[in-house]
Design a protein around this nucleic acid. Sequence first.
DNA 1: CTCGGAAAGC
DNA 2: GCTTTCCGAG
Length: 619
Amino acid sequence: MKTSADPGFAFPDWAYKPESSPGSRQIQLWHFILELLRKEEYHDVIAWQGDYGEFVIKDPDEVARLWGARKCKPQMNYDKLSRALRYYYNKRILHKTKGKRFTYKFNFNKLVLVNYPFIDMGSGRVPQSAPPVPTGGSHFRFPPSTPSDVLSSSEELRSPGMFSSVARRMARGSVSDCSDGTSTNSELEEAVGADERGMGPDRAYRGLLPPRLPHDSLFRIYPAGLGRHGPRVHPDSLSPFPVSPLPGPGGLLGPNLSPALSMTPTPHMSYTPSPSMSSPMLGSHFSFNQEDMKHYLQAHTQSVYNYHLSPRAFLHYPNIIIPQPHRPTLEKPAAHHLHCPPLPLSHSLNQQAAGGEEREQHPSPFKFKLQPPPLGRKQRDSGSSLAAASSSSSSSQSSSFTGSSQIINSSVAAGPPKIKVEPISDIESEEEVEVTDISDEDELNHSDEEEQGGIFTPTAHHYHHQLNSYLRANGTGSSHSAPPHSHPEEDPDDDVFKTPATPPIGSSSQAFPLINLKSEPGQAAPISPCIPLKLRFKRRWSEDQKMEAEGERDEAEDKKVRADREEEKKVGEAENGGGRGEAGGVILGLMLPPPPTQRRASSELQRATAQLSLENTGC
DNA sequence: CTCGGAAAGC
DNA sequence: GCTTTCCGAG
């Protein structure tokens, strides 16, 4: 809920909790940054500024000092700290706002997604402070995925569970725990002192800063989007997350399901400060009606099937009726579902049934991007050509997820996708859209090179392929029948999907590297009926079992992908590949479907929370 | 300033 | 795994 005192930016509380950085017992830098960011005392040192998630280190030395204090590394300096920050680029936790000194931007999508909506079906609203978390450690992993990247799935943000409680704790004081006690307060004070000392200008600056909202607001906001009633939240809304201006009818509420969804880039989100907003927003809850949820879940389920995900997933949704995988109709929806919210989903379904491809007409806010793996500097330099190529291909796809044919063509023509495709789930997606800052634009132009932006969503891609395959297998149809995808992008679901997708590693022979990994034949046309559905599922299932173990593989694959990408560069071909997104992994893990029962979830959550709360650190 | 490779630490 | 430390390069 809200910490009245907390000026925090709009990130969810969980984002601030140390616990959110699981993997490490020690606080992680990004977390620390967030911590500073949320405290007014440090606004003169570091503060949100510019686009959503963007912050400026006003006093690098001070930040470094604080960080050093926290980590008991007196020798810390901005150079070192910034190096650590740069390591986040590849992880996509952070990226640099080009052209702006000391300015970085969080990829909250990633972070947020993790906590994403643990929807409380029972009550119909999401718990503000403590979303139900999938049981502590269990994360559901979608198959091949889990990008180990950034937040190791379960680890980093694993406990989305507690939002506020922890946050509060943190707020109380933990900027620095070095040598117990000493610092927390002292540091804080120091920081404050610093402010006073000499940052006159900052004050003015402050005014410019986005208003800080209670973390809670975030969640509320999403809901707003979700709610049918509040579908259109002003982008300006307090929420840090840009609300996507959903073009679609009815506003694609869908995306709202997850924050990620809402992350759609907004042309410009200023965090607008309207203090007033907060209260109104408060009213809106993250609520779904069961129907919506159902739709959502069904879609999800369907998707899972389509993605040949493990059936286990369904276990989570006992109440849900699993759609028949092979039914084309459902499939479409499923696909659709990527970007659409539950309600919309149903909506779209109908529409689709009727009008099929016309969906495109409603440009959805989401789009895909091909996202090559972050290139190293060297690579980037040499790979520019590649980027260009990829961009072109991606653009076509992204612009219209029209049909499999298109995709297929591109992929086929191009050959196996070697490029690492990343899901857009992250904020990155937002970035892409946002033209706000230079960096973003830059990236856009370049067809996103890396982390920043967009990420093509392999997911969508994969999904598509798979879908097509499916259709074909079922005799449904032509390659064209593929459902037009609107915009996969930010959906959390996308992430979900994408996650499953396996990185295309490339054997050039495979037309659909992504999909077929296992069950489906690589060749497009051929896929067919050769493999009975049952068999396929069976295989999936078994594979699924392996999956858990495979999680780690992702990273390796990632690397592999990169390597592939390089090769690709050499070849000069740009493609879409499948890749897995890091974020996706994380997201998936946390996003798991809510436990069948809320109560159970709640209890688990509580447990987890309690557990987590115990873990604070110190040096 | 910024970027990342490399190596070392925890 | 996540930095911390160094460092050359842009």
